[in-house]
């Protein structure tokens, strides 16, 4: 009896060690593959780059120091320049704001239409889901550049592009929230004869609003950054001013610094404010 128990515990021990060794080996192989991928990837990217990594690393601070030294020399200009670029900054924020608003409305509708148990047309749930996937997958730059061709420059192409992407992205997050919503209010409202929109408006929205708002705020943060980048690639807002100032190069670096500072301050402020409100919304205090 004790012998067999002993033998069995020995077996278990051997098994366990073999298992542990195997796991260790798998982890080791995985790690090795990862390191190899990273190293070869960096070498490949380095080879394809115009300037190499090791040649460029010394110049990393050249451009910032050049820019900063010029800006310091013209420090008196900075407040005036910041004032000058304020309208562009407001435009960039407006692009993000409207895009988030429109995207949140569209995302809310799509998410309710694609949540099991809440959907107006249960058969069409897969269709709405695929629609959101598609909207999420198209990068903003694609839509923005095409719309610039159709509508000309200005803030509207960027706004539509970001709103389109936001609809898909928020729709997915919203539907995760509404999936967990309590169905009882909806059932109660429906039994009292409420229409679908009334049941959603009075039964679901009050439950999901805090989480939805929190996601929308987070998205607004992301959209401000996206709107600055789209301005640089396409047109509209502070990104476009940054591009023109950069193209001019030396002599206008005070403008570049003014824009950098504005953008940095905006992003940090929006980041802080939104994280404060999100905390309040989700935690409830």
């Amino acid at each position: 009896m004790t012998d067999t128990a002993f033998a069995r515990s020995g077996d278990i021990r051997a098994d366990y060690l073999a298992h542990a060794r195997q796991r260790q080996m798998y982890s080791g192989i995985l790690l090795l593959v990862f390191v190899l991928l990273m190293v070869s990837g960096f070498q490949l990217a380095d080879a394809r780059n115009a300037g190499g990594f090791w040649a460029g690393i010394h110049q990393f601070f050249d451009f910032p120091s050049e820019v900063v030294s010029e800006a310091v020399a013209k420090a008196a200009n900075l407040p005036g320049l910041m004032w000058k670029f304020l309208p562009s900054l407001i435009e960039t924020i407006n692009i993000a704001g409207v895009a988030t608003l429109v995207g949140a409305c569209g995302g809310a509708l799509l998410s309710l239409l694609s949540t099991r148990g809440l959907a107006r047309f249960p058969r069409l749930i897969p269709l709405f889901r695929r629609m959101m996937d598609g909207m999420r997958a198209i990068p903003e730059i694609v839509i923005a550049l095409i719309l610039i061709f159709l509508l000309g420059g200005g803030p509207v192409p960027a706004m539509i592009a970001i709103a389109f992407h936001t609809t898909g992205a928020l729709g997915k997050l919203f539907s995760e929230v509404s999936e967990n919503a309590d169905r009882k209010p909806v059932e109660g409202l429906s039994s009292a004869g409420a229409s679908w929109s009334q049941a959603m408006w009075l039964g679901v929205l009050p439950q999901v609003t805090p989480n939805w708002l929190s996601y929308a705020l987070l998205r607004f943060e992301i959209n401000v950054r996206a709107s600055a980048i789209l301005g640089f690639v396409g047109s509209g807002g502070i990104g476009y001013d940054l591009k023109t100032a950069m193209q001019w190069g030396q002599g206008r670096y005070d403008q570049v610094v003014a824009i950098f500072l504005l953008l940095f301050a905006t992003i940090v402020v929006i980041d802080q404010v939104s994280s404060h409100f999100r905390h309040k919304l989700v935690k409830g205090h």
Binding site: N49, G52, G56, Q59, P64, I229, M246, L263
Partner: peptide
Amino acid sequence: LIWTIILSRAFGPGP
């Protein structure tokens, strides 16, 4: 965006 601009000054265009 700003990182991209600063980095492309140092390392030139590319992946």
